[in-house]
Design a protein around this nucleic acid. Structure first.
Length: 1094
RNA sequence: GGGCGGGUAGCUUAGGUUGGUUGGAGCACCCGGCUGAUAACCGGGAGGUCGCAAGUUCAAAUCUUGCCUCGCCCA
């Protein structure tokens, strides 16, 4: 038994808060999962947020899409566990703490105390945890935040260590160099994020240097100098090669005259000296009169040797390519000379190129930013940025300088000290992703990406160019790299706490001092740094002083959340690979990549099967939301106004999930007003009457069988069926936005604006009637289905409705589309047994009825016939039989009698229209001529006969029936509209209205006008629907007569008892005895009518 | 500089793969109608060089190329 309670007003915030409390008390979330125990598992992995920043609206978007899929799958019967997670390590945390404690450098941190610093980080990570929890609950993201995985936990770190060891053992982990922006003052290398904080525009000397070609292999250009350009003279001692583009065109030129007097700065060239540079840059660079000796592609320069600028700075070692010209595809002629000076240790491209071609990789600058002893006597031991001038002098003296030029550019500076950053090759650890590239690509092919172009394009492209992953950071707060190294370079990688304990014990036995290493040893720095291990020779091993890239942490989430392989043996088995992940598209090279990278390197497996990549959230003006622009939208603005339902629904409907979303606060408002208020009022209409009538929708006896209900009922039920199926199918193909728009259209247009509007009077009936119960049963069934369809997206309101109508939470209910009739791709292929019967013909017919109703109103407007004045007759010409709906149409259009008329020609003639597609194929270039000829045809009837009998030739082309389309248009003088209906077979349907007028019609029209005014008055007076009134109406002389039946109708409709009809205008004082009644008037056509209501 | 995606009415957008009749909606605006129908509804109007240019074609918002512009990622 579940008779609904009346609905009351819609107060989104109050309703949702009530819902939250109910879910909490009744443990609806956990019950919704437990209920599907034994169902197919749908594995979701939550991308862990960091709680050291405030949650914003973009987080709500991502969480909405996570939640809706999980809820949807749950309702389909899947077991969907949802473990929460927190990302707690990493740079942003450290920066935050450094700012707060004013620690400017790594040295400052060490001085402050690494342990204390990390303790600060550990606390800082949770700054906004409460804000996150509140947001999560308020937006109704169902995720288990009571048992989350947390990346700073020992168990989590231990799992990460295990994975690192796996990679180490497979030879996928190695130590190398990485060129990073580095600040010698703070001793810190910077991430791009930090670099971005400190760009400054500076003017610096740039130099064109001459590298003289000579020696073996350089015979072709012997004696000529290649011109190279750099903006960082301090890197010149480290020069070990020159890069050219093999397809770039170069010139060899000969200086033919002395430089002019206007020569600016140091450097120069002598007459007869030969120089080589890119053709495109010749004019820009060269300041001498020159003779062009030859033109050739860069490929001819490759392999040439030149004289080192600073012969003592770098040792050749066994390099065969040092100080030669090599090819690099990235060389351009946009600036410089088309020849790129390469200092392996001081540029990322330089380093990669150096590794590729085998240049010597040696530092000329130490970690403090000073030149290493033996670089050059002028420079040794000096801070590099102080040496620019001396280096230029030296080059000029040696005749190695062609020109100097001041150069203005944006250059990264340390955001803490303001010093310029140096690009510097740092010791670094890498995962050899290049070794598993094929597997990465293979696994990526198996992922179902939404949208597919992210997987194929953006991500696929990235994978095809995959580089080794630099996973170490010279930082403090993170998962420590568990590698210990001896002075000879021997290494040991630790994969668990117990292994660490064993190794520590071994070292202690070998005589090394070590702190205690208990079971709950903190796996962070500096604790782990303090352990000294021992190698096979009994020598000490110290830990490599790095922490892991925090992306590595989150990339381990799929197994580290279970503390694999140390506990929960079956957890990973049951939860891998992942069915669904969803994050912003900015995670493509972030989490999407690191998950796949870790699962490939460690498990040699696919990681996730489906990935929804969300577009960025922009503000209403299309700008990225950022704190600095102050355009971040606080989700609570909407939670506290329109509520989470409207906010979530808006997010789904606003656009395809992968498109950038311009978050428009007005859009949320619109969703609230349109979708949710409308649905609520439909529900309220039903619930209020159901409560009044003690209607129990769950009682099978309460509603007549569908087949016995009115066509209107059967229509909305069939529509419900169709909409449910397409909604489901659009979910299955990730088109959530389309699904939402369709359902919104159904609720607003089909259900509210048509079904409920057309059904209102049925429920007013105070007696029990089969028709009333049909309507109530229908509303009940439709509302239940709508609730279930909406539940994954907007979980609050529909839960309240569902609960009130059938006594059960919608989140424990089943998805209306039964899982066992789904096709292989998850789409609903068959008719759904759980849904009401489908009746396509009825839907088509009703669509036509509505079309006729809309167009009928247009006919009235065109004919200037106001709606309240009835028409005597209307005819429908052509189309399917609509006789069941004639009464309905009559009411809609205020036409006394609608009938079917078969004689089309009575109102219509035909016109011939070209079928462009068919004619275009046939006539090609002559199409305009044919169209013109068709246009000139005067009698379409005759022409049509000619065409049908194959006699029609236009502009030399034989015209067939398929080449033209026949359109029916009303004959002049009729108030009519014609339109084409049908999907495959087109049929013309016309509606014709009789515009004649007589006194009976005028009387009815008058009655309607009066009723309308009185009803408005009743509403203004806030009268109860069942309240009666005292009514006086004064009709002026000359006004159309109001016949008795129409006056009776007025009285009945307005519940007027007693009621008096007067002729003429009211006298003073005749307005009734009571003070609160007053005489009002209104005008119909030209007549002024007075009335008073008491 | 490279990769990916976007640019359609004042705003938000559909359509774009498969070229074909007059480029659809919603919000806002104007006019009219209707309402015991809700922050509602209905009819009409105004509002578009479909980013620009060239090309292919009888025909381009749609296909091709180049450019401009915005965003993301990478350099």
């Amino acid at each position: 038994m579940s008779v609904p309670a009346p609905a009351g007003e819609y107060d989104a915030v109050e309703l949702e808060e009530r819902g939250m409390a109910r879910w909490r008390e009744e443990k609806v979330f956990s019950r919704s999962i437990e209920l599907r125990q034994g169902g197919e598992r749908f594995i979701f992995l939550e991308g862990p947020p960091t709680a050291n920043g405030k949650p914003g609206i973009h987080h709500v978007v991502a969480r909405s899409f996570k939640d809706l899929v999980c809820r949807w799958k749950t309702m389909q019967g899947c077991y969907v566990a949802r473990k929460g997670g927190w990302d707690t390590h990493g740079l942003p945390v450290e920066i935050e703490v450094q700012k707060r404690l004013d620690l400017k450098s790594n040295e400052d941190i060490i001085e402050f105390g690494m342990a204390e610093f990390n303790q600060e980080c550990r606390t800082s990570v949770w700054t906004y945890e409460d804000a996150w929890r509140k947001m999560t609950e308020r937006m109704a993201f169902w995720v288990d935040l009571d048992n989350p995985y947390i990346t700073l936990h020992n168990e989590y770190i231990e799992s990460c260590w295990w994975a690192i060891q796996q990679m180490f053992d497979k030879g996928l982990l190695y130590r190398g160099h990485k060129v990073l922006p580095y600040c010698p003052q703070t001793g810190t290398s910077y991430s791009s994020h930090e670099v971005a904080l400190g760009y400054k525009e500076v003017e610096e000397p740039s130099v064109y240097i001459k590298c003289k070609l000579e020696g073996e292999g350089s015979e072709r250009f012997a004696g000529a100098s290649i011109l190279a350009w750099t903006t960082t003279p301090w890197t010149l001692p480290g020069n070990v090669g020159l890069a050219v583009g093999k397809e770039v065109t170069y010139l060899r030129i000969k200086v033919s005259e002395e430089a002019s007097d206007s020569w600016d700065g140091r450097g120069g060239a002598e007459v007869g000296e030969e120089l080589i540079l890119a053709k495109d840059l010749f004019k820009e660079v060269i300041r001498h009169q020159c003779e062009v000796l030859e033109e050739f592609p860069g490929s001819e320069l490759i392999g040439m040797a030149y004289t080192p600028l600073f012969p003592d700075a770098v040792e050749r070692g066994d390099s065969e390519t040092a100080w030669t010209v090599v090819n690099a595809d990235w060389v351009t002629t946009s600036d410089g000379t088309g020849v790129v000076h390469t200092a392996v240790m001081y540029g990322e491209d330089d380093y990669e190129l150096g590794m590729e071609v085998g240049f010597p990789a040696q530092h000329t600058v130490d970690i403090g930013g000073r030149f290493i002893a033996s670089t050059h006597p002028l420079l040794d031991g000096r801070y590099v940025k102080d040496c620019d001038d001396d280096i230029i002098d030296f080059l000029a003296d040696e005749n190695l300088l062609y020109r100097e030029k001041m150069y203005v550019h944006d250059y990264p500076h340390c955001w803490r000290t303001g010093h310029p950053l140096l690009y510097y090759a740092m010791d670094s650890w890498f995962v050899r992703m290049t070794a598993v590239k094929d597997r990465l690509l293979e696994f990526n092919d198996q992922v179902e990406w939404a949208p597919d172009w992210v997987g194929e394009g953006r991500f696929g492209e990235w994978l095809r160019n995959v580089k080794d992953w630099a996973i170490s950071r010279e930082r403090f707060w993170g998962t420590p790299l568990p590698v210990w190294r001896d002075e000879q370079g021997g290494m040991k990688c630790i994969g668990s706490i117990s292994e660490l304990q064993a190794e520590v014990a071994k070292a202690v036995a070998a005589g090394f001092d070590n702190p205690e290493c208990p079971d709950d040893v903190d796996l962070h720095r500096p604790v782990v740094d303090d352990f000294t291990l021992v190698n096979a020779e009994g020598k000490a091993m110290k830990r490599e002083p790095f922490v892991m890239d925090c992306w590595f942490d989150s990339g381990c989430a799929f197994f580290a959340q279970w503390h694999h392989p140390f506990s929960g043996e079956t957890d990973l088995e049951n939860n891998f690979p992942i069915d669904y992940i969803c994050e912003g598209v900015d995670q493509t090279r972030g989490w999407f990549y690191t998950l796949l990278a870790v699962s490939t390197a460690v498990f040699d497996s696919i990681c996730y099967k489906r990935c929804l990549s969300l577009g960025l959230i922009l503000d209403a003006e299309g700008k990225k939301m950022s704190k600095s622009k102050n355009n971040v939208i606080d989700p609570w603005d909407h939670f506290n106004r329109e509520g989470a339902d409207s906010t979530r629904w808006y997010m789904m409907v606003a656009g395809a999930p992968w498109n950038p979303m311009k978050f428009d606060p007005n859009g949320v408002r619109e969703t609230y007003g349109k979708m949710f208020l409308t649905l609520w009022n439909v529900y309220r209409f039903h619930a209020d009457y159901a409560a009044l009538d003690k209607f129990d929708g769950e009682d099978a006896e309460s509603g007549p069988p569908v087949a016995e209900r009115s066509p209107l009922d059967r229509w909305i039920l069939s529509r419900m069926h169709s909409v449910a199926i397409s909604y489901h199918d659009q979910f299955a193909s990730w088109d959530f936005h389309k699904a939402g728009r369709d359902l919104e259209d159904f609720v607003v247009n089909d259900l509210s604006n048509w079904y409920v509007r057309r059904s209102r009077r049925r429920l007013w009936d105070e007696n029990e009637s089969g028709d009333k119960r049909s309507c109530q049963a229908t509303l009940h069934e439709v509302l239940i289905t709508v609730c279930r369809l909406m539940a994954p997206v907007a979980p609050f309101m529909v839960d309240e409705i569902h609960l009130n109508l059938c006594g059960e939470s919608v989140h424990l209910a089943d998805w209306p589309i039964a899982a066992d009739v789904l096709g292989p791709d998850g789409s609903a292929t068959e008719e759904q047994p759980g849904l009401p019967p489908l009746d396509a013909a009825l839907e088509a017919r009703m669509a036509l009825v509505r079309l006729l109703a809309e167009n009928g109103r247009r006919i009235r407007v065109d004919a200037k016939r106001r709606q309240r004045l009835p028409c005597l007759e209307g005819w429908i010409v052509g189309g399917p039989d609509l006789s069941k709906f004639h009464d309905l149409l009559g009411e809609e259009l205020n036409v006394e009698k609608i009938s079917t008329e078969n004689d089309l020609d009575r109102f219509q003639k035909i016109e011939l229209q070209p079928n462009h597609k068919a004619l275009g194929k046939k006539c090609r270039g002559d199409l305009p001529m044919v169209l013109n000829a068709l246009d000139l045809i005067e009698d379409a009837e005759i022409a049509l006969d000619d065409i049908r009998e194959g006699r029609m030739v236009l502009a030399g082309y034989h015209i067939e029936v398929g080449d033209i389309e026949i359109r029916r248009v009303e004959r002049i003088g009729y108030a009519a509209q014609t339109f084409e209906v049908g999907d495959e077979v087109k049929v013309d349907v016309s509606l014709v209205l009789d515009m004649s007028l007589d006194s009976a019609l005028l009387s009815k029209g008058l009655a309607r006008d009066i009723i309308r005014r009185i009803q408005q008055k009743r509403k203004d007076l806030d009268l109860l629907i069942e309240a009666t009134i005292d009514l006086d109406v004064w009709l002026p002389l000359g006004c159309p007569e109001l016949v008795e039946v129409d006056w009776a109708w007025v009285k009945a409709e307005t519940r007027a008892e007693p009621a008096t009809l007067h002729v003429g205008a009211p006298d003073e004082g005749e307005a009734g005895e009571s003070e609160d009644s007053e005489v009002e008037s209104f005008t119909v056509d030209t007549d002024t009518i007075y009335f008073s209501v008491q």
